[in-house]
């Protein structure tokens, strides 16, 4: 693979793996949501994310040119080959943390995918145009729910504050600016994610103040997911479940 192709492949894995890992985590709520409506909403959100995964990883596989499919990339790679940010892989914990994570991600995805619609790469632009409609819808719900729970009871407020405290150090990784990011920017494929931090932060602050939640006073950020350098221990456990069928019965088809 040439360096240029490799950068594009890495970039596509980052998009696809974020959608895949968050989609799988979200799907773990299916059947155990706190209310029927929320269960359905979570399952639908997961479905959108898995759909987006197919588009991103399908294209990644084509770019790689190694005869692999989106399914191969999803089910036959090990943790170190995943390029999702760490926030996607940490366990759901409670409904509050799940929705807080969704909100943090959606608040980024909407401006990010909006920008990607103008990508010099037509395929990237098309996938972004398709996905941004879903992301906008997700944001509407995750934002409303975060505010409702923050501005709810003492119990719901403290759970949301805990969720925010836990997830905050994982947010910084979204805004990377490494070699792959700069290469994508130079080729006009995508902006450098760090340029969207201001927009993201303003939206997050507005919602969290409505939710009576306090942003932790720390800029510390965990990293290692989007480069694959060091995932959390949680990803391996998640993949063990997610990939079990293809690992046990290689090539099994529906």
């Amino acid at each position: 693979m040439s360096e240029q192709t490799n950068h594009l492949f890495e970039f596509l894995l980052r998009q696809g793996d974020n959608a895949l890992v968050l989609g799988h985590r979200t799907s773990q709520w299916c059947g155990v949501g706190p209310a029927l409506e929320e269960d359905i909403a979570l399952a639908n959100t997961a479905l959108d994310l898995i759909g987006q995964t197919q588009l991103w990883l399908g294209y990644a596989a084509e770019v790689e040119g190694n005869n692999r499919s989106a399914n191969d990339l999803a089910f036959l790679r090990d943790a170190y080959d995943f390029r999702n940010i760490l926030m996607m892989e940490v366990p759901n914990e409670d409904f509050g943390r799940t929705l807080m994570r969704q909100f943090m991600f959606d608040t980024y995805q909407v401006p990010w995918l909006t920008e990607l619609q103008n990508s010099s790469n037509e395929r990237v632009a098309a996938i972004a145009a398709k996905s941004v409609k879903e992301a906008r819808y997700h944001l509407e719900r995750s934002r409303e729910t975060v505010i409702a729970l923050g501005d709810g009871t003492e119990e719901s407020n403290s759970r949301m504050q805990n969720a925010l405290d836990y997830l905050w150090p994982y947010c910084g990784e979204i805004f990377g600016a490494d070699e792959v990011d700069h290469a994508m920017s130079e080729q006009g494929v995508a902006p450098v994610p760090s340029t969207l931090k201001g927009t993201w932060r303003a939206c997050v602050e507005r919602a969290l103040s409505e939710a009576f939640l306090v942003i932790p006073n720390s800029e510390f950020a965990h990293s290692g997911g989007r480069t694959g350098f060091r995932h959390t221990e949680h990803l391996g456990h998640m993949l063990a479940t997610m990939q079990t069928l293809q690992r046990s019965y290689p090539g099994a088809e529906w």
């Binding site: 409506e37 909403a41 399952a43 639908n44 959100t45 509407e140 719900r141």
Partner: peptide, 9 residues
């Protein structure tokens, strides 16, 4: 509105 999502996407 009851929920933003329903029986199908």
């Amino acid at each position: 509105k009851v929920s933003q999502f329903g029986s199908t996407p």
